[in-house]
Design a protein around this nucleic acid. Structure first.
Lengths: 218, 218, 218, 218
DNA sequence: GATGAATGAGGGTTCATTCAT
DNA sequence: TATGAATGAACCCTCATTCAT
């Protein structure tokens, strides 16, 4: 991206082909996200992915090794993205600050990566067979947050709540904007693909969470 | 079950076969819910449905006319169930009462019918092509609730919130227990199919919502 | 069709059931004729036959032993009907009389039994695998006619023609009214199932044949 | 049949594959004609078509998109071929010339394309559901011929006949050589697939028609 | 690199027929 | 007799993948 090479490339075949390859691979990625997120692993077809990426099926198989691997790659890609949004900001120990930041990050991820988010949802819906390695990590990371929240509670800085349930509430509310995007747009009277104005949502969500936790909204 | 009970069978062949048919049809229904909710319409296979119901594929087609019709039947079944949970109690005009009742009903539906709930989610994920007829109804029903909430707000009985977003927050939080059941159980350290203790959840959810709306929890 | 059964039956159960059986069998026959004549042996389905006869499939199999046998029964039924129309009248030795009578009988058979006629056509179209036993008979019967015609020709009572071709011309022209009934009705501006006025056709056909044979039309 | 290709192949790979594709497509076409013409649309199976063309079923679907489309393609192919044979020669206004030419063309089409001809027959036998668009064209073209014949009659150049019936007689007699080819060969003592000597037939047919119309044979 | 072709498995569905009842 | 159910084969078609070119 910030490579010093301009669009007016030296023209070396090597470089051009590499660019082409990257463009194709990102086209495949986007196409695969779309298809997998709409139909799940079993329901998605390589034909549809190939067509969406502007390739033929054999061409697609030149770039990927299998449908399963492509899917897993994307799935792990979400899990990594999750790690960021899942983590609490360490910059502050103020519950209100930490929680609002968390909500905002979660929501942003859902709205910036609705496809990837939905892939995770289809995976969980399907039973989460590919997530056995992931659960321990998620559990650990969740437990850390739970402990932090519980400390806040024991310090009287927060209303006593079940911290795990609180986190799930946040997940449910934010993930909703990825999984139910279609319904959200219908309800908000937006065109099917129209982007949502996210600031009001962040604001209401954080206020809601803070009030729910007995905290003063920022 | 009293062991001396002899099935209270009338003994008539007619009755037995009819019972058998009903048992099979409900087995098909359950199997279809499971498969569709796990893999979506495209990803589900009639073979899997048949096997789960203890039938062969041609046998299955003796009871259903097509995969699509079976799916749509189930989908409409959710939509009907939705109508109940979607409706506000008319027995009260107290925001706290109405909202907690709504949350409770929504959650109960998700926990009582996780499969059906997930089918709706897969449908929305897939783009909601089968929901064109449903949206107007849902929008109307939602708008009615929005107006009621707005009245409460204008009467100063509730904190000013975006009513639509509020409803979506409730949907997201309750639906989460159906869609993400697998993750919920992992997080709550429950066995994969173990039933959840729903009372604490209802309690925290309603408290959360009421506080978020600036209402005193019951 | 031509069943002019007396409704005033003795009323005996036995007789009534026998009547019922006969009625069913004739319904099956008609249904089978329709289906086989429209789609051929392979293309016809027992389901369609059963439905057309107002029966279920297992019910149908109670009356017939197999699709093939039902088909063959009908086919042989045509072949028998053929024998009549195929035979020259022995009452006269006048070429004009014999030929016009033959044309008339052929045409009448086609118009009275279009379904059966078409079954024969589908059989021939399909290769005539079921007709191996029939060909020798047909050939013999044809050769006899050929010899008779040839005698007429050698006696100078008819223009010299290839007798076999002449017969085929008659078959083609008459069979056309069964096989191409749909097109005939379109061309004659008749409703799809409307009966045709056959006298003009008989007249033109016989005149045509007689003139073609150098005979004076009746 | 229509293979007029130069055996001297350029040898280029490109050319070879394209030739291969064309050869396969024409094999499919021939196979499909054979199967459809023998069993009708419903009775024909893609398996049989594939095998006859030397392909597997999925291979076949690489070249065609569906059984129905393949069938319709062939059917329309007949209808187009029909247009030629259906048209009267405009080169002459002599009834004898025009009619004999018509008979000859019709017969030639039936003998050159027996399979395609039979496909049309199976379609008409089956009710002609695919011919709704075709009928108006056929009716118009027929009416034009009828008017011409009627003019000849009114000018006293032809015996008065029902022109439509006359045309149907011609259709019946010529089509017979396609539809009843099997029986024709049996009757004429030819081997099942043996080609017929068509000149005597054309001669007798035209003579027959001209005499039937009160015209002097050429 | 990329394309036409092939492959074997499996998709949903209907088939003719038989078996209990 | 007649019906609900079952059966195994076959139906048309698409799948993910691989192999020549």
């Amino acid at each position: 991206m910030n490579e010093s090479e301009t669009e007016a490339d030296s023209g070396a075949v090597h470089s051009r082909t590499r660019q082409g390859r990257e463009r194709i691979q990102s086209a495949i990625r986007e196409a695969a996200i779309e298809e997998f997120s709409r139909h799940g692993f079993k329901g998605a077809s390589t034909k549809a992915i190939a067509e969406r990426a502007g390739l033929t099926k054999p061409q697609l198989h030149y770039y990927i090794s299998s449908k399963e691997e492509l899917y897993e790659e994307l799935l792990y890609s979400v899990l990594n993205g999750w790690s960021d949004a899942f983590s609490f900001d360490n910059g502050s120990d103020d519950p209100a600050v930490v929680l609002s930041s968390y909500v905002r990050k979660k929501l942003n991820y859902a709205l910036d990566n609705p496809g990837l988010s939905r892939i995770f949802t289809t995976e969980v819906l399907g039973g989460g067979r590919n997530l056995t390695k992931y659960w321990p990590i998620a559990v650990k990371s969740t437990n850390e947050k739970v402990q932090l929240i519980n400390r806040w509670i024991s310090e009287g800085r927060m209303r006593p709540v079940d911290a795990k349930l609180l986190l799930m509430q946040i997940w449910g509310m934010t993930q909703h904007y990825a999984d139910y995007a279609v319904q959200v747009n219908v309800m908000l009277n937006l065109a099917p693909e129209q982007a949502i104005d996210r600031e009001p949502i962040v604001h209401q969500l954080t206020t809601f969470v803070l009030l729910g936790c007995g905290l003063a909204p920022n």
